[in-house]
Design a protein around this nucleic acid. Structure first.
Lengths: 210, 210
DNA sequence: GGCATTTTGTTAAAAAATTAACAAACTTGT
DNA sequence: ACAAGTTTGTTAATTTTTTAACAAAATGCC
């Protein structure tokens, strides 16, 4: 995708939201939607919607609006979702297992194709229809299926080590659920999701009135 | 907490990261840390660290740095974590169950005290040592334990309905894992966590080079 | 005790992101 | 065919956030 300039990080998250609304609209048979409607449904301003889209091109018709299906397809392409992506999970604990079974990934084109762990007691167990395999087999699998995406659901203490190994194995995009800062080399995209921190955001704001 | 002015949203997330580093440092017996050290460990700039802290007061000593334990305590207080918080989860599917068992919450002072679902088949089942209860019992529980925080792990289609009921029951801070935009009245804090969107962030950036 | 060094807290500058404003382009009705 | 009404795409203004700069305060060495 030909990004002219730098795109605000938040734009990517909003594109996701737009796309979900557009899919719904299309399924309802709606033939045009305005930036106003998209904005209302996703909780942003119409100007924001148009600005976000403007980074990537012109998708609407002045005086009319956007065609939901068409714009949906464009956004999915922008997000790199015009294909399916195989994903592996490292860490077969509760969180890893839950993520492996989470239906929301497949819905958006992400297929969990492998789960790896270092605990010998877990190897061979199945989560859904995927067998937990030892971490040593990661590279083989990554190469076999050209896997680029991985999810880290291991304890904080081993996260950096695991991430290093993933990168070495060929993974290029990583979501880290361990509550610790890890570093990756140039060319690898890392995103940290701190679940407890989300609750802390709430308590901070509830505390505002104290 | 006496917030003089508006605090950047990102600051809250960074405070979480700082606090984790400070706790570690304190446990290692380190008696002073600089903004530089905090910055390096959490992946931000030293100026950012000092700016974030400046919103809330003066916690360091010029020429010296910060005392890890002391600053940790301050930050925890700022985040509202100088107490424990009871939390309920709505939705006893895989994600809800995994979140209920996730150890990372308790570590930061959040106790999952209830899980609710509408599916009669699930009522009575246990997740860990918590019994799944029908949604109708939510209000009773919330009032009994003065619960303010809730996590939504239900399908997108029922998320708004569930959130409305939570608010009605007295919940004031909500994390929504359903991939849909829901609205809450004034005075209720809502945070949406879209797991698939996190992967999409990765594919977007991997796609940059296309 | 004074001077060099360190590191904070704060103010100023810069950068980034959001919001607003409006001309251009399309539709519809007469 | 023209006027009135929409709605986009884009430029400009505003707001927010981050980064930089530096005086103030502390330490330690000589």
């Amino acid at each position: 995708m030909f990004k002219k300039f730098k795109i605000p990080e938040a734009t990517v998250g909003r594109l996701t939201a737009y796309s979900r609304f557009l899919k719904e609209a299309d399924e309802k048979g709606i033939s045009t939607v305005s930036s106003q409607q998209i904005a209302k449904a996703t909780g942003v301003t119409p100007a924001q919607v148009r600005k976000d889209l403007a980074y990537f091109g012109e998708f609407g018709t002045r005086g009319v609006g956007y065609n939901p299906r068409e714009l949906y397809n464009y956004i999915m392409k922008i997000l790199g979702l015009d294909r399916r992506w195989p994903v592996i999970i490292i860490g077969a604990g509760r969180l890893g297992a839950a993520l492996a079974m989470y239906g929301g990934f497949a819905e958006r084109g992400f297929d969990i194709v492998g789960i790896f762990d270092v605990d010998p007691a877990k190897i061979g167990n199945k989560i859904g229809d995927i067998e937990i395999r030892p971490l040593e087999e990661l590279k083989e699998k990554v190469e076999e299926l050209s896997i680029k995406l991985g999810i880290v659901a291991v304890p904080a203490a081993s996260a950096q080590e695991v991430v290093d190994f993933m990168v070495e194995s060929g993974i290029r995009g990583i979501i880290n659920f361990a509550p610790v800062n890890v570093s990756v080399p140039e060319g690898v995209v890392l995103r940290r999701v701190d679940l407890a921190s989300q609750l802390e955001y709430l308590t901070f704001h509830l505390g505002e009135s104290r």
